[in-house]
Structure formats: structure tokens, C-alpha cells
């Protein structure tokens, strides 16, 4: 049986006449790590803010454990947020930052100290209680922001691109750490990112968002291998979209065959070769003028720009998608 902790029902929201959310419905399971994935301006942050109560939807409802919390003040919800810029209080030290929520709840001082120490240990910054936020590195601030949220034992933790400001190496490390933390705490994480790799790495499920609409919700496998729409196919893994008559097909660049790989049946001309992200990308123009990219590991391949070659793909690698 599914154990739904949070439910969004047909959420609509406009800002000054611009429709940001066009009826978003989503069910989120207990202890799930779900990612809202989409380009900037797709409405993912607004969705998160509506769950947090920092924004009110124009239409639709939000249910937490079956209880309607649509119009509840943010301080009355058992939901906490890790903000994009961390939003640590600059005039309080780390311990006071982490203990802020507990102090507001009028918890006894000794108990706060214990819980704060525990939370700091969880993010491996036990020794940093007396530091001020401006004495911390970006990664440390990030962890404090997480500690400050989870110390309140929220039912749902909202994370708004929490790793966006960190460098690549630290980001990879924090991805693993966040995933570990989520498993350990058993809290539902709703994670926002525009980084498909991050989403695939961490999530139990991914909800791909585009222009205020959820295009597809599914496991990373489903999203990657069975994209429902051309947007999802393109956004997650930059698949080629080919049009055949009325239909559109998504073909991943690594599945485009060339150089005598079987079956190569289509005439194509090599337009361009480029090296990016550890991969060689070769752009072909098919006979009907459509462009298609193949990718291979390595920095070069035995194929020259301008050459007329044969390419192809296996039928199961061409996934039929809905045009978005």
C-alpha cells in the first residue's frame, strides 16, 4: 500500500498575470526522495514555496498527511526548508542558528543544546557551534542550513537547489551525503534542481517540470529510458528528437550507430565534431535535413567533417514521445 505524506491537487498560481503553475498535481510518498527537475522559471521553486507556505496558491490544495494545509501559515506547518542561499542568520552563531526553531518552540535550554549538538554531529560539524556564519565555507554553511532544518524533525524537508552554489567536486560529495542523511533520518525530501545528473543520482523519483506543468513523474530509469515527452527526452540526457511523419521519436546520442556498427542504414553527412564533457559529439545531417548527434567516449573518431556516411539505430532505442 502506498503511504502518501504530501499531496498537491491541481495547484495554480499566477504572478502579475503570468501563469507560473498551470494545475500541478503530485503525490509524494513517506520517506521518499523526490526531485522536481526543470529549467529555471519552470515553476519548481514556486511549487516548493507553496508547500512551505511562503506562497499561497490561487487554486488547488496542499494536503499534509491528509490534512488540508493550503492556507496555513508557514510557521504552523511541520515542513522545513533549506534555502538556496542558505539564509543563515548572520547575527547568530552556528549553535543559535541551528537551535532557532527549537527556541521558538520554547524547548528547555538544556534540551536544545543536546539536540543542536546531535544535529551538528549529523552534518559532521560538531566543533563549529561557536562560529559565526561568515566564518564558514560554502559547504559548511550548506550543512548548517541542513542541520537547522532537520533538527526540527520535519515531516517533509524541502531543499531548493541547495548545492547550486558549490563547486563540482563538493557538489558530488554533498549529493552522496544528502542521500545518506535522507536514508538515515527517514524524512521525506523534496529536492529542487535543474541538474539532471544530480536528479538521477539522488532521487527515488523525479518529477520533470516545464512551463508550470509536470511533464512526467517516474523513477530515474523511467525518466531516462522511457521519456513521455520530447521535452523530458531533451532535458534529461539531451536526446535527439526525430520526426517521422506525425510522430516524434527520442534517440539518445550514445545509441546512434556509425562507422559500420549494425544496423547502419541511413545516409547522413558529418556536419561537425566537438569535444565536451569527456565525450566526442558528432553532428550529422540526415537526407531529409534533420540533425542528429552521436556521442562516443574519447576525443576523436575515425570520421571526418563533410564526409558522406551511413548511420543508424536499433528500433528499441527510438522511443516514441509526445511533442511538448
Amino acid at each position: 500500500m502506498k503511504d502518501i505524506i504530501l499531496q498537491l491537487n491541481a495547484i495554480q498560481k499566477s504572478f502579475e498575470g503570468t501563469e507560473v503553475l498551470k494545475g500541478v498535481s503530485l503525490e509524494i510518498n513517506r520517506a521518499e526522495f523526490i526531485t522536481l527537475l526543470g529549467a529555471s522559471g519552470c515553476g519548481k521553486t514556486t511549487t516548493l514555496r507553496i508547500i512551505a507556505g511562503l506562497e499561497n496558491p490561487d487554486k488547488g490544495s496542499v494536503l499534509l498527511e491528509g490534512k488540508d494545509i493550503t492556507n496555513l501559515e508557514p510557521n504552523k506547518r511541520n515542513v522545513n526548508t533549506v534555502f538556496q542561499n542558505y539564509a543563515l542568520f548572520p547575527h547568530m552563531n552556528v549553535a543559535d542558528n541551528v537551535g532557532y526553531g527549537l527556541k521558538i518552540k520554547k524547548m528547555p535550554k538544556a534540551e536544545i543544546a543536546g539536540r543542536v549538538a546531535e544535529a551538528l554531529k549529523l552534518v559532521q560539524l560538531e566543533e563549529y557551534g561557536k562560529r559565526m556564519p561568515d566564518q564558514l565555507s560554502g559547504g559548511q554553511r550548506q550543512r548548517i542550513a541542513i542541520a537547522r532544518a532537520v533538527v526540527n524533525e520535519p515531516k517533509v524537508l524541502l531543499l531548493d537547489e541547495p548545492l547550486g552554489a558549490l563547486d563540482l567536486k563538493l557538489r558530488r560529495q554533498m549529493q552522496l551525503e544528502l542521500k545518506r542523511l535522507q536514508k538515515q533520518l527517514g524524512i521525506t525530501f523534496i529536492y529542487i534542481t535543474h541538474d539532471q545528473e544530480e536528479a538521477i543520482n539522488m532521487s527515488d523519483r523525479i518529477a520533470v517540470m516545464n512551463k508550470g506543468v509536470l511533464e512526467q513523474v517516474g523513477t530515474p530509469n523511467e525518466i531516462y529510458y522511457q521519456p513521455r515527452t520530447s521535452y523530458v527526452a531533451d532535458f534529461v540526457g539531451n536526446a535527439n528528437i526525430l520526426h517521422v511523419g506525425e510522430d516524434a521519436f527520442a534517440i539518445r546520442s550514445e545509441n546512434v550507430l556509425m562507422n559500420g556498427e549494425e544496423p547502419c542504414t541511413k545516409e547522413a553527412q558529418v556536419v561537425e565534431k566537438s569535444f565536451a564533457g569527456g565525450q566526442l559529439r558528432i553532428l550529422f545531417r540526415l537526407e531529409d535535413g534533420q540533425l542528429i548527434t552521436a556521442s562516443r567516449y574519447g576525443i576523436d573518431a575515425d570520421i571526418s567533417v563533410g564526409a558522406q556516411v551511413k548511420i543508424g539505430w536499433l528500433p528499441e532505442h527510438a522511443v516514441k514521445v509526445v511533442e511538448a
Binding site: G53, P74, F83, N85, A87, P90, N152
Partner: peptide, 14 residues
Amino acid sequence: DFSLVEASRDLGAS
């Protein structure tokens, strides 16, 4: 930074 006020509201402050 208004997000600090939002953070405080999020953490339970009226």
C-alpha cells in the same frame, strides 16, 4: 535579505 525572514517563519516564528 528577506529570505532570512522567510527562513525564520519557516522555522516556526510568527
